[in-house]
Design a protein around this nucleic acid. Structure first.
Length: 307
DNA sequence: AGGGCTACCTGTACGC
DNA sequence: TGCGTACAGGTAGCCC
């Protein structure tokens, strides 16, 4: 009996300590989760919310550059400019993050394919750490395995006119992205998937969401845009907004499940209807999902449901 | 002018 | 087991 009691107690203690440990690492788990997938608009928005909670009004004591060789070399003036300044606001534009500082400088951040942030009280080096922001009681670390991401410093006045931001199309969740805007921009010679992927047409959509949006709209990704009917424009605009909003919402809820249940799956993986499902049955008609290559990128669709 | 292609990068999966 | 190769994708920059 005492053996059983002791065994149960040990087990309970183990479970509790694991749970406690998981809770402590909650913020890190959030970004491991993100790092499993390419950051598109909803993921960048989730990162933005995380940063708002953790680094707003925190004075940056110093910035250490562990490795300056990202997509663009990190200039040494980044650490000089940001030391002893305070982040007052975090903004998102498309897939870009903007850190606004109280000294009229703005740090432009792109997560690339695998970039993510984590917060630590005591810094522990991990492979592919590139940048460490030292605050009074914590550290913000930028890690990027494939180095497609970058950080660049700009004067606040120049930032909106920089080459990365000046040609970006409207935010898909804004009222600017609507039927009229879509209709007035169909004078390009391309197909619907490439149009949605084009950041100058609409900012923030990536390869995964484009496949999903077109499945929801019942439109084949290779369709030339001059053959898109008016009612289909409405359908696409609607799908863009619904899918993005749903994904942002899920980003905030199922991560908790991820932590508690320790399932090593991304939060929107369960929601994917076509992406990565080639050879498998369509959820609507059971027909096999097809994978093709468009402009060097994989596209997934159902030839039965999408015309 | 603008559309299309490719390099960049590294971990992972797979075949031999 | 171990090696080689293909693949994944966001963006800039080049080419046509």
């Amino acid at each position: 009996m005492s053996f059983i009691r002791s065994y149960l107690w040990d087990t309970l203690e183990k479970i509790l300590s694991t749970f406690d440990c998981l809770l402590c690492l909650f913020d890190e788990f959030v970004f491991f989760c993100n790092s499993c997938f390419m950051p598109e608009l909803p993921e960048v928005e989730t990162v933005k919310v995380f940063l708002e909670k953790n680094v707003i009004n925190e004075k940056t004591k110093s910035v250490k550059i562990e490795n300056e060789n990202l997509r663009f070399v990190i200039t040494t003036n980044v650490s000089q400019i940001l030391s002893n300044s305070t982040i007052t606001k975090i903004l998102r534009r498309g897939k870009y993050l903007l850190f606004l500082y109280n000294n009229n400088f703005t740090l432009l951040v792109h997560l690339g394919m695998t970039g993510f942030f984590r917060i630590e009280r005591k810094y522990e080096f991990r492979k592919h750490d590139h940048l460490i922001f030292n605050f009074k009681k914590k550290k913000l670390i930028f890690n990027d395995v494939r180095k497609f991401g970058f950080v660049k410093i700009f004067n606040a006045k120049e930032i909106l006119n920089c080459s990365h931001l000046k040609n970006l199309g409207p935010e898909p969740l804004s009222s600017k992205f609507c039927y009229e805007y879509f209709k007035n921009n169909l004078n390009r010679k391309t197909n619907i998937k490439n149009l949605l992927m084009n950041q100058s047409f609409v900012a923030g959509l990536g390869n995964i969401y484009c496949s999903e949006i077109l499945f929801r709209s019942n439109i084949k990704p290779i369709r030339p845009i001059n053959l898109i009917k008016d009612y289909e424009i409405t359908k696409i605009v609607d799908s863009v907004k619904k899918i993005l909003l749903n994904s942002i919402k899920l980003g905030g809820t199922t991560i908790k499940n991820f932590v508690v249940s320790d399932e090593k799956i991304g939060y929107f993986k369960n929601e994917l209807m076509v992406y990565g499902r080639d050879g498998m049955g369509c959820f609507k008609c059971k027909n096999k999902i097809v994978k093709i290559t468009q402009s060097g990128r994989s596209t997934f669709f159902c030839s039965q449901c999408q015309k």
